[in-house]
Write a protein that binds this DNA or RNA. Sequence first.
DNA 1: CGCGGGCTTGAGAGATATCAAAACTCGTGG
DNA 2: CCACGAGTTTTGATATCTCTCAAGCCCGCG
Lengths: 263, 263
Amino acid sequence: MNMEIGIAPHAAEPPLVRKLNRYVALSSRDRHALTHALSLDVRNVRFISMLGEASVRPTKVAVMTDGWACCYRVLRDGQRRLVACYLPGDVCDLHMVFAAKPNTIVMLLAGARIARMPREALARLGEAHPRVARALWCDAQIASAITREWMINIAHRDARARVAHLLCEFMARADAVGLMRDGRLAFPLMQSDLADACGLTATHTNRVLRSLREDGLVALRDHMLTVPDRAALAAVADFCPDYLGLDADAAAPDVPELRIPLH
Amino acid sequence: MNMEIGIAPHAAEPPLVRKLNRYVALSSRDRHALTHALSLDVRNVRFISMLGEASVRPTKVAVMTDGWACCYRVLRDGQRRLVACYLPGDVCDLHMVFAAKPNTIVMLLAGARIARMPREALARLGEAHPRVARALWCDAQIASAITREWMINIAHRDARARVAHLLCEFMARADAVGLMRDGRLAFPLMQSDLADACGLTATHTNRVLRSLREDGLVALRDHMLTVPDRAALAAVADFCPDYLGLDADAAAPDVPELRIPLH
DNA sequence: CGCGGGCTTGAGAGATATCAAAACTCGTGG
DNA sequence: CCACGAGTTTTGATATCTCTCAAGCCCGCG
């Protein structure tokens, strides 16, 4: 039934490859090299678990292949605050590789699968495949843009809009990697995680979710997020997905000139 | 009187070069190349003014040489929210160069000076000088870490601690580029900018500043920030400067292996 | 001297936090 | 199969921080 068989073995390409290919048109050699590199060290995560150890620079870079992960900032009193979430195709810990003293940790949620590459391997890949390197810069900048957007969300919107905005973002990102099934998304975060990401208390997040549910905008039950009318939710959230860099066409006009090696 | 003459013409090196040299030990050829590239297009800013145009990808990358700049996220209703501030040595708009549709604008404050490099020139520089490229990655990741910290600040701390934290960060960064003069810092931001960066209203920020002033922690007058006891302010703010990557020694252990070209 | 932008202060409203407890879910062991 | 218990969600009542609106003040500038 798969009519794409004649075109390319796309199904075999990891989500990261497909994503990067949207930012920068990669050659088939580029894609193969990255796909291969991502196939050498794959790990399945049965239960929620930490990726690496707190405050030590990872020697490998981890890429989500399946499932969800969360990045927490660890405060000095031991508290944790959610600062990012990762879906398939996202690089989890590049920021820690460059930090002298990483102050974040990544938690892999149950059911996640990651591919890991030694940082030297990634570096060599970047040198041999400059378009891949450029795409990784784009990706890192988009990750940054997402953080900025979370900051704006927390600083600027009221609780209802915050939660709605976060959910819209998750759906947009999930959509881009084919995780949405007619308005439904397997959603492993707890309400307290959502609260944390929105700068709210769990109690108040619960009330907000109820209010959204009562308005028929959102149903969150059994680890399943259902949004009957995404446009309506986006209106509540003032959500504009441009920052995610997802619309393939508008993607970075193929300007091959800006490159900075990832050393 | 300058006893450093015999060592190196450090004074001539732009702040960015000195900063990058802390992340990655640069060769003198690296430093010269970057210094030269930063000397070709220098611009003085008399009055507050926009860098580039809203939502157009810059063709040149701007680097602060002197003074202050602010980066705003532009919301759909035309409002602006402060998402970053730049001091000498900071790259202003690299994130816009990679974005398909930049949603931020950079404002240069009166008295700022910037150096601009065409992005192709930066790319070539990165290829010819891999250590510079790696340092630019580090710098971008630190910029990201600062954004994360602002997010935590807004989400996690009360108004007093927020303002104190932001001021601590500014002082630490200013210190690193030699802008502090015995506990005093020329401080061009208005209270409403501070408020914006902290996710507070200007009114409440004013009250917080008064409270900090009454406790003898902060004096902000005549565009001059005075902090008699930085440790005391840091305690109020729960400030830990590690994320700024400023302590030269702890800086990225010279691991030359991770490079991704900036294409 | 008058004017405007930024700073300061006040009073009241409102959104969100805090504290507390009940209801529900799900895996586990008896 | 049921009971248990930990973790999660839900609800309620109250406290409080921050916002909103409004006015006065200060100072530099035309």
